[in-house]
Design a protein around this nucleic acid. Structure first.
Lengths: 354, 354
DNA sequence: ATGAAAGCGCTAACAT
DNA sequence: ATGTTAGCGCTTTCAT
């Protein structure tokens, strides 16, 4: 009763104009005399007007289409999680007239990425969420998007030149440092530490090497440490993959392994289990079904959670806030580097929100 | 264009009734004939009607007052965080006509809790967020709230008999297990592990002992382990406090300490630093200013984050969803047991949302 | 350049 | 018990 909210109507009255005029200055659509403009802005500043976003949304009654461009979830459990986040956001925003269209590309095929990205462009959505995992192929796509003035949000992979509405993901360098810290913690015996990049494609290597950089610099910063750090880039499709990995794991000086990919984590764990190497510490990525199995059995010691599901769902939310509510979105939304252990993993599974 | 959203009006037409009737069955306000009821529910189920919450909110044009009852933030940095979460929620929801009123009580004074709770009752808010840290004093308060049918949400401390709209917090038992795991990890030498409950009041002890239970059972489950587990309940206001703690820390067989309170964590860390005991592992709670200092200097090894800020802000959100949007809220919202380390702590500070 | 007025989808008061 | 209607605050179209 005391402080009734100020409406556009009140401003109109105070400024001696009509609501139409107030609306015009509010959105500077022009066609308003300098005098009216001055009067209205003055009044608005004085009473610190805050528009009612609910009413705005209802009044404008627009329907937005958002395109989500990401790898086929069927190819990889990690991307299946991302996809889940999109589905979640879809149902959440459906009632507000937001439509999310999926555009999936082949995780291992750059040309498929290009083709699908073009389809997105042709679909002329109101906003785009994109996982630009192929650096070189993505650059011209952003040019295209910028031409049409469609806002786009990056997730998972950051590209400096992209200039998106916002980027959602993690600080990979720091992620590597966390990996190093977890391998290092409580290790007293000297020995070897291995960084493993296990991926079917090399496209990610820049991306993954960022983690390795953090990993190595952690130890550099610690000064003289009795560890030798080795690293490998392995392709599980390579016929010699099994041999390479087994040979590596047979090294008796090996104290710990840091695997930079989520899939690679499970693969490495399976080898460690097979070879009965329970004393080698393993740190990897993400709460995938398979990884959880090895985490619970103690083969995997720590997982760093990249939270792909939430990355994707938040990406959609950012877009909605921008389009619908005209709210400012943070330029970069860096997720916390969550450390998952045997004892806390279940607490992460429970609540879908976090 | 294709699938225009279904409006209440459409349902009315399909069911051969008026919008008024549809609205009545939607909110079962009664005064509708069995036939009409049947017809309308049928139609609604068939087309899976999802009300437009935006329109609903605007249409009902209600202003809600929410009361937040918690300890004085000035007394304790932990509660200062909770308070921050409330302020945050306040600004977030202000534009939707939600008012949050603070009711603060003295952290160390049960009667102050009772008094303030009564003030809340007299204020007759539309919803209540409450941190019921005093078990016995809280019980009659809940009776009172229930009489008036005001929905209330608990945070921080769960009380089984409370029957609230929802509880927001963590699984304390599991939290203790995580603490144990972090103390245990990579410890090979036999020795003593201490559980420390450092609190100015004993009110929390039940609460804290739940953590200890988890802690101890973790080791029981591991079978024969070379650790002796001891525990202490210490009051920092006690004149002998310093002596007791110092004596404990001088024990050369002491390998690790698990402190169950956030404030106690910093206190213990300061003693460890003073005594130059850098080899004793320390696991405690929460990302407070002081704890961060010791985490960065390596005195504290791990913190378990209870996320008081987010607990509080989510508590308000739950209430808003219930009051305003008539959305169902989860009966219990258990937060993940976040493990904070030297290398990931900054990633938690950055984004306010998480 | 400006104002009037008709929506947006829902709620709630008021007739009937 | 049911239908009608005037809002909620803002947007947008259409006269003027």
């Amino acid at each position: 009763m005391v402080d009734k909210n100020i409406r556009i109507k009140d401003i109109a009255k105070l400024a001696g104009v009509s609501v139409g005029t107030v609306d015009r200055v509010l959105h500077n659509r022009g066609r308003v005399s300098p005098e009216a403009l001055k009067k209205v802005t003055e009044v608005m500043e004085q009473i610190d007007y805050k528009p009612n976003l609910i009413a705005r949304t209802l009044g404008s009654n627009k329907n937005y289409r958002i395109a989500a461009l990401l790898p086929d979830p069927k190819q990889d459990p990690y991307w299946a999680q991302s996809n889940l986040g999109i589905t979640q956001a879809q149902t959440e925003w459906a009632q507000y007239g937001i439509q999310v269209e999926l555009f999936l590309f082949d995780l291992l095929d750059k040309s498929s990425f290009q083709k699908t990205a073009h389809q997105v462009y042709l679909a002329k959505p109101d906003g785009i969420l994109i996982a630009p995992i192929f650096y070189h192929e993505a650059l011209p796509i952003f040019e295209l998007f910028r031409e049409t003035d469609i806002p786009y949000v990056l997730f998972n992979t950051n590209i400096a030149e992209a200039a998106p509405l916002s980027f959602i993901g993690q600080n990979l360098y720091q992620s590597g440092r966390v990996g190093a810290e977890l391998l290092h913690f409580g290790q007293h015996e000297p020995g070897t530490l291995a960084v493993l990049h296990i991926d079917e494609d090399i496209h990610d290597s820049v991306h993954l090497l960022e983690k390795e950089k953090g990993f190595r610099e952690y130890f550099q910063d610690k000064g003289k440490i009795n560890f030798t750090i080795i690293d490998f880039i392995l392709n599980p499709k390579d016929p010699s993959f099994n041999n390479q990995l087994e040979q590596l794991l047979q090294d008796n000086s090996l104290r710990g392994i840091f695997v930079s990919t989520s899939k690679g984590t499970a693969v490495t764990a399976s080898f460690l289990e097979k070879l009965g190497k329970r004393d080698i510490r393993l740190v990897g990525y993400d709460i995938l079904e398979e990884n959880m199995k090895y985490l619970k059995s103690g083969i995997i010691d720590f997982l760093i959670n990249q939270n792909p599901k939430r990355q994707a769902s938040l990406g959609i939310s950012h877009l909605v806030n921008h389009l619908m509510f005209k709210k400012g979105t943070p330029g970069t939304d860096l997720f916390p580097l969550e450390v998952i252990t045997q004892q806390n993993v279940d607490s992460y599974l429970g609540s879908g929100i976090h």
